[in-house]
Design a protein around this nucleic acid. Structure first.
Lengths: 219, 219
DNA sequence: TAAAAAATTTAGATTTACCTAAAAATAAGT
DNA sequence: ACTTATTTTTAGGTAAATCTAAATTTTTTA
């Protein structure tokens, strides 16, 4: 079965929103896909007919087995291409998302298997998100929110919770990126700000809003 | 200005057909694009409005300067991706065309410049066709039709005139490919067949139809 | 629990790229 | 030149994915 880029984008959106909450609402999808609720309803009927998700009017949606499988192949393609762009073509990790949004819809299965092999079967993309293998399995990263990490313990940034340019601009300014090593020095309960010491820099304080979107792991 | 994949395919088709004859006919385009003449007429009006080509009813079309520029960027992308698929991902040179047809529509300019750089600025794709540089310039290959090549002179296959599976199947069977070394031993005027000696094989005869689509260069 | 608010769906239109069938222009044959 | 054949265009219609506006269902709240 072959799907349009649009259908694939809907499935991907349901997949991502489903991680958070159980059933996904029409409005949430409309926000995610930058379109109107009426358009969502139309497409959900189409996708239900194709058995990619279960949908009852006014009750939200949930991916079927088939739908999950499709979502995982798209996520796999997206993340493999991101890895390729950063590690082979030397893109910055913060400029690959848009391009990967296009590349993920290239249909050739052989292409993605050969790409995976060429890249050496990477397990995580440049944002720290796990790459599903060709069966849809992926490693569960033991990544923790910076806010929940203990003091004075070496940590490595392994993913960020958003791709907004505002966030990326801030991270660039502070010279924080995927792979940065740091330790938490203090947590201020008044405003939930956090003092951190990034390797190679003097200690400084970051806001609660920023700390909230940074995920780290032990090293 | 941004164009749809469909528009890009029309421009590419006009470009290729224009190489042969001067003005390109509606029917020729319909055949090339596997669609009906009426659809061609519709789209030609659209592309004329976008100033990509000059078109008068019943008189055929010709690309404008803008149109040629666009065609060359698409050809550039197509051939760079083919080079990548064969030389980086280890595809066979005869299985990359379809995939490149999809990849050529990825829009990022930065992507294609980084890809070009990564590949080492190749001048020819795996089928022997020249790759336009980022200004649209490409080397003119001194390639000659096998039928016109002199006897007993070492030659190398540098391109084939079609990507049909029928042709590729025949070439595979005869173990002829891009880069094959050979010499012409005899030409038979009766049926225009040609006896060739491919390096590493015994001499054998190929039909006029086959010889006609093989292009070689001196070595 | 009944009215108000919010979310969702339906109805009807629009745009893109295609189609078929019929009409018009050009090219060919005698 | 004039009739026939071919090519091309027009007219009208379809399917996909979107939209706005109105109707419906669900949720909230007073």
């Amino acid at each position: 079965m072959i799907f349009t880029s649009t259908e694939e984008n809907y499935i991907k959106a349901v997949y991502h929103l489903q991680q958070e909450s159980g059933n996904v609402s029409t409005n949430a999808l409309a926000a995610e896909l930058q379109t109107k609720a009426a358009s969502i309803t139309d497409m959900l009927k189409k996708l239900k007919a194709k058995k990619l998700l279960s949908y009852e009017r006014y009750k939200g949606v949930r991916l079927s087995g088939e739908g999950k499988k499709l979502a995982l192949t798209i996520v796999r393609k997206h993340r493999l291409w991101e890895y390729f762009l950063v590690n082979t073509l030397q893109f910055g990790w913060d400029e690959v998302h848009e391009v990967a949004e296009e590349l993920e819809h290239i249909s050739s299965k052989k292409l993605i298997e050969k790409l995976d092999s060429f890249l050496g079967y990477p397990k995580f993309d440049p944002h720290g998100d796990p790459i599903p293998d060709n069966l849809g399995k992926m490693e569960t990263q033991e990544q923790v929110n910076l806010i929940d990490f203990p003091l004075n313990k070496p940590a490595e940034i392994c993913s960020v919770g958003s791709q907004s340019t505002a966030l990326l601009e801030l991270l660039r300014h502070k010279q924080i990126g995927i792979g940065s090593r740091l330790e938490i020095k203090r947590k201020f309960s008044f405003d939930q700000s956090v003092e951190i010491k990034v390797k190679g820099q003097n200690a400084f304080t970051i806001s609660q809003q920023l700390a909230q979107v940074l995920f780290v792991k032990n090293i």
